[in-house]
């Protein structure tokens, strides 16, 4: 396999995004209100926000799965108008196909694009290996633990070779122990296969541990409240005094229950 650390990657930005949903009783819920952000090439950007604030809505719009009421998403200065092979999405609730094996799930994007079976399996195997699941190619999702399922989700997003990876609380459903491990893992994978990453979380430690930069969202309707560059060297330590300093600074500015 060729080296996967290609230098030139994409940047993605959101410009004046608005989104609201019609409620049951006729009035509308405003979910996104003038959201602006831009992500640099190969940057690991974390979006931090409280539950139900509109993070999933934002990410779905960025991935082209949903449309905004106004404003636009620019991927390398081109507006995003629908699902795009250059945008890989990792879902909060895994969203693996129960009837597909690990191999089938990881290679499905290539199958949709008509890549031959041999080629797509070779490529999928590389990413299955990268996320540490070699040997489980033939397993079905129900046979995997939560952490393993999300590894499949990550491999699947990688396998279509997107320039930007969008991750929606990928570790939200995991137990604390597995979560720490997966946080280390995602950095390891990212270092080996650099992409532009937008990582959504509601966990402040996770955000500081992972991000090059943190975008803090307000409660619903979500707006960008603040942006924090994190210039701590990796691997970061949760107990490091500078880590705790940053944590305090962000915590003072959030409505997150801490």
């Amino acid at each position: 396999m060729e080296a996967r650390n290609i230098d030139v990657k994409s940047e993605i930005s959101c410009q004046h995004l608005y989104k609201s949903f019609p409620g049951m009783d006729g009035n509308v819920t405003e979910v996104l209100k003038d959201v602006n952000l831009s992500v640099a090439k190969n940057e690991f950007l974390v979006i931090l926000g409280p539950g139900q604030c509109g993070k999933t809505t934002l990410l779905n719009i960025m991935a082209g799965l949903d449309s905004s009421d106004s404003g636009e998403i620019l991927l390398n200065d081109v507006p995003v108008s629908g699902p795009n092979p250059n945008l890989g999405l990792v879902f909060q609730r895994m969203a693996l196909m129960p009837w597909k094996t690990v191999m089938g799930n990881v290679s499905m994007g290539l199958k949709f694009r008509g890549v031959s079976k041999k080629e797509r399996e070779e490529k999928a195997r590389y990413f299955i290996n990268l996320v540490g699941l070699s040997g489980f190619e033939k397993s079905y999702p129900y046979q995997l633990s939560g952490g393993m399922k999300q590894r499949v989700g990550i491999a699947r997003a990688y396998c279509s070779d997107p320039e930007v990876l969008l991750m929606d609380e990928p570790f939200g459903a995991l137990d604390a122990q597995t979560r720490y491990m997966m946080e280390e893992e995602i950095l390891r994978i990212w270092e080996k296969a650099k992409r532009t990453v937008v990582f959504v979380t509601n966990n402040i430690e996770e955000a500081i541990y992972l991000g090059d930069r943190i975008v803090l969202l307000s409660r619903c309707p979500a707006t960008v409240k603040a942006v924090y560059p994190i210039d701590l060297a990796r691997p970061r330590q949760f107990t490091d005094s500078r880590f705790l300093e940053v944590r305090q600074k962000i915590a003072d500015n959030t409505d997150l229950a801490l």
Binding site: H16, Y18, S20, P22, D34, D69, S70, G71
Partner: peptide
Amino acid sequence: MATRIVAAPG
């Protein structure tokens, strides 16, 4: 500033 268009229930 972009104007908001709310999806019309109609």
